[in-house]
Amino acid sequence: MIPPSFDYHAPDNLEEASRLLLANPEAKLLAGGHSLIPMMRFRLAEPAALVDLRKIPGLSGIREEGGSLCIGAMTRESELEKSDLVQSRYPLLADTTRVIADPVVRNLATVGGNVAHADPGNDHPAAMLAYRASFVACGPSGERTIAASDFFTGPFSTCLEAGEILTEIRIPASGAGSGGAYQKFERKVGDYAVAAVAVQLQLDGGQVAGAGVALTNVGLTAIQAGAAEAALVGSDGGDAALDAAAEAAAAAADPGDDHRGSADYKRAVVRVLTHRAAASALARAREAS
């Protein structure tokens, strides 16, 4: 399988990248290439030009700043895996990264690409929804910040406008009493999720004060399960609350039948994973209290 021909550009600044994208509506950004190149090899994507982000400085890195964990769009998944900061303070993100694709793919795949690709099977979008993350985009009319909940508009589509480039992902900094978990059920390593659930909790004096619950690959986009969040908030995190949240998450899922299983099955998996993820998130949040 050989990709079709294209023009290749590797600008060294965002303005130039943005200009190239605007000048060529058939152009696409190239980050880690691990979603785009496979699609091109099957000629499911035939961009006339690729604008490679690799030479633009400042697009990768992980740091805490201004109450956020800031992750550059070009940060590789493996960098998250190796980051002590992420591993020790952002368990939901750490969990998610570990189950994306396989270790070799993670060396090149980028966090920004995972989010921007907006494949309903991508794992980061749900984690970002649960975290209440926001995305920084840079484009012809400057920089703007987009809430994760506004970002994903459909399968493989986002609210990014022509010429806009995702530059950074911001996750609210982890504090006392916060904890999260990602539970993914996959058929084998390297597979996209049958279903996966991200849960991020904030405890306050033993009560759940804030909750984010979001689902992967059971709908056209990652789904934020508001009712599941509501079932958790205000509760003590007991089994009854977890069951209610699990039920609500299953109801929020909107899967189809396919070779990964029937819609009923996937909903059942969402229910189970929500319970497990919430239990694990709670335990971690308590530990961090």
């Binding site: 190239l30 190149i37 493996s78 070799v104």
Partner: peptide, 17 residues
């Protein structure tokens, strides 16, 4: 690729310049 394992079927040679 620069010391880390990479699947070379999913990298353009130009990007390895």
């Amino acid at each position: 690729l620069n010391g880390v394992p990479a699947k070379s079927c999913t990298v353009f040679a130009v990007a390895a310049d």
